[in-house]
Design a protein around this nucleic acid. Structure first.
Length: 630
RNA sequence: GCCGGCGUAGCUCAGCGGUAGAGCAGCUCAUUCGUAAUGAGCAGGUCAUCGGUUCAAAUCCGAUCGCCGGCUCCA
């Protein structure tokens, strides 16, 4: 019989009769966790026969590719359970996602929490039966007929986008679903399932189409892994900046002020101020001019810039006063452009870098608001670099070099979306080319995202996951040939003739709101010393030590340290607990011994009791640690 | 904006048709204490808002507002 040569990832190689299944080969190993394989890089079911020489890579739940298959099969199991409990349910799509899977259904009404429990219970029963999952080929016209008679309009629409004939289906226990696969060998592989939430989701992500009911879930090969995952979710909730913001008195949102308009409480405002000073110092050192411009502007400004045509749905409606029509600004660029225009520029002066912690107001739809991470009034760490075309790449690169790692998204326009993006193909092509060039020169990997650009140009977005795993854009850099054109910007070149500069828009630490949300979650509220709103709290043992405690506080304040005193009549243990819960980095216990010797007993947030040190020595230590910004 | 869930004291929550409760926080008093909660007392609520059902509504129904999870959108 004809043989095929198979090589494995460990470098070994063997020959098998043609047509041997992957399952048979996997059975020769002593591993029971192989759930599928990649054959020459293509994921395949274990039931697939080998027809030619191939490189085989086994997949288990431990591999990202294996998880995908595992969760995809769980999504099918979910669909099967829903179909059994709701025979009229129409199926849409059910892919694996980063953590688990979802499946979209149309059952004519939303799922209730009770439905979810029933579905989850049915999934467990079905998994227990351990039915084999089989791939079957179905003639295209048969599939179309089946979808029509079953009223499966979503599946029918999906099929229109698939050119194959026949198309592949997967069948388990009488249930079948059109699917590319691959899948687990049988349903019994799914040991621990949890359905996490339901929500509405637009068919094909289009808000003008049907709203389907989505069920999110996750599954694992063992109960322990599921429990560990659920525990991680709980831990993430503890780090949630909204919860910590309330507990640590950093910020508050009140109905009377308005949605998406948070109040920075004294503690939060202190952290913000430290960040602001840091940023301004840093940027002035990098050659940026920090300016200040007003939050309101004449509508005219935004008509010139193009915001009026392309960004109006994010702007608050104009207000009429005297003969003027004013709007709250959604972006700062036009103001900075007017600053550039306020005087003539020689080619020798460029680049001109104009920066501002600029307040902006954007109308965000109510459902998207979230703590400090997504608000309606915000302050952007904004800057606009006006440069010559030959300086563009260097300027862009030096901005990006300032970023931390994380992942980069190059956001491009969708040429078909004429409403959202200004029309000028040559300009877009040039800007996109420059951006890709610079990223390649920097050696940075990035993904491209069509339709995510600004209306005036493509941008580089730095994406950072928050504690709940959702990506937020932190930094952004945009290349803009459009606004200089709109505003008729010029510089005088070597040839004494006017030339058009190019603009780079950049926000490095995002808005102060989003950065604060990010930092709270990053540190779980325990800010490093330089950022901590209350860096030190002095804890007198008894009331008679209060005067000395105040002296310690004044000495520290004099050295620029933010120090508080706990003047309550509680016991020391209680005071420590309070300070610890507020995540104060240093607690200084002072009693008779300390007062007599001009010392303080240091207790650090992380390290516990560190013993007594002279006050002057501690002050020096704190000042040094603060300056280190760690 | 759309789909669903949830709104009870400053915070965390119980009560789920018979007239509002706990713990923590706050205030007062006592205690003056050495490294994560001293004790006692007091005060605090139009049960988000408005309307309906009922002899009776925090509790059931509806609308509105807000928050939460998604969708869409985004710094």
């Amino acid at each position: 019989m004809e043989q095929v040569a198979v090589t494995f990832t460990d470098g070994s190689a063997r020959r098998y009769p043609r047509g041997t299944t992957l399952a048979a080969i996997a059975a020769e190993t002593d591993r029971r966790d192989i759930l599928a394989a990649r054959v020459d890089g293509v994921p395949r079911d274990l039931a697939a026969p080998l027809e030619r020489d191939a490189a085989v890579e086994w997949l288990t739940f431990g591999d990202p590719g294996g998880k995908e298959i595992y969760w995809h099969s769980t999504a099918h199991l979910l669909a099967q359970a829903v179909r059994e409990l709701f025979p009229d349910a129409k199926l849409a799509i059910g892919p694996p996602i980063e953590d688990g899977f979802y499946y979209d259904f149309d059952i004519g009404r939303p799922f209730t929490p009770e439905d979810l429990e029933a579905i989850e219970a049915r999934m467990r029963e079905l998994a227990k039966r351990n039915e084999p999952i089989e791939r079957i080929a179905v003639r295209r016209n048969e599939a179309i007929r089946a979808f029509q008679s079953g009223g499966e309009k979503y599946k029918a629409e999906l099929l229109e986008g698939i050119p194959d004939d026949p198309v592949s289906f997967y069948r388990q226990d009488g249930f079948q679903d059109m699917c590319r696969g691959p899948h687990l060998p049988s349903t019994g592989w799914i040991k621990a399932v949890k359905l996490l939430s339901t929500s509405g989701a637009y068919w094909r992500g289009d808000e003008h189409r049907e709203m389907l009911q989505r069920i999110y879930g996750i599954s694992f090969p063992t109960r322990e892994e599921l429990d560990a995952y659920l525990a991680r979710l709980e831990e993430a909730k503890r780090r949630d900046h909204r919860k910590l913001g309330r507990e640590l008195h950093l910020f508050a949102s009140v109905e009377e002020v308005g949605q998406g308009l948070p109040l920075w409480l004294p503690r939060g405002a202190t952290v913000r101020r430290v960040l602001e000073r840091y940023i301004i110092d840093l940027e002035e050192g990098l050659g940026y001019y920090h300016v200040h411009t007003p939050d309101l502007a004449n509508t005219q400004l935004y008509k010139i810039s193009g915001h009026w045509d392309h960004y109006r749905e994010n702007m608050y409606p104009p207000m009429k006063v005297d003969n003027e029509e004013l709007v709250l600004r959604p972006m700062n660029c036009p103001h900075h452009i007017m600053i550039y225009k306020n005087q003539q520029h020689s080619y020798r002066d460029l680049p001109v870098r104009i920066a501002e912690l600029g307040n902006m107001y954007r109308y965000e739809r109510s459902g998207v608001l979230s703590g400090l991470a997504r608000v309606r009034g915000m302050t952007l760490n904004d800057a606009h670099i006006f440069c010559r075309p030959d300086q563009l790449t260097d300027e862009f690169m030096s901005v990006v070099r300032g970023f931390r790692e994380y992942w980069y998204r190059v956001s491009l326009r969708d040429p078909a979306d004429r409403a959202k993006f200004v029309q000028n193909d040559a300009m877009w092509d040039l800007a996109e080319q420059k951006l890709r060039e610079a990223m390649t020169a920097l050696g940075l990997r990035f993904v491209e995202a069509k339709g995510e650009a600004s209306f005036y140009g493509p941008k580089l977005d730095v994406q950072v996951p928050n504690v709940m795993g959702k990506d937020e854009t932190i930094s952004t850099v945009q290349i803009d040939f459009y606004l200089p054109e709109r505003f008729g910007l010029e510089y005088i070149g070597e040839d004494s003739q006017p030339h058009r500069p190019v603009m780079i828009h950049r926000g490095v630490i995002s808005t102060l709101e989003r950065m604060m949300a990010f930092l709270i979650e990053l540190y779980a509220g325990a800010f490093p010393l330089w950022l901590a709103p209350e860096q030190v709290r002095v804890l007198p043992i008894a009331d008679r030590h209060l005067a000395y405690a105040r002296r310690v506080q004044e000495a520290l304040r004099g050295a620029g340290v933010r120090a508080g005193v706990d003047a309550s009549s509680e016991r020391t243990g209680h005071k420590i607990r309070e300070a610890q819960l507020m995540k104060v980095p240093y607690m200084l216990v002072v009693g008779n011994r300390e007062e007599e010797q001009e010392t303080v007993a240091v207790r650090s947030r992380g390290g516990g009791d560190e013993g007594a040190v002279p006050l002057a020595a501690l002050t020096d230590r704190l000042v040094t640690e603060i300056a280190s910004r760690r």
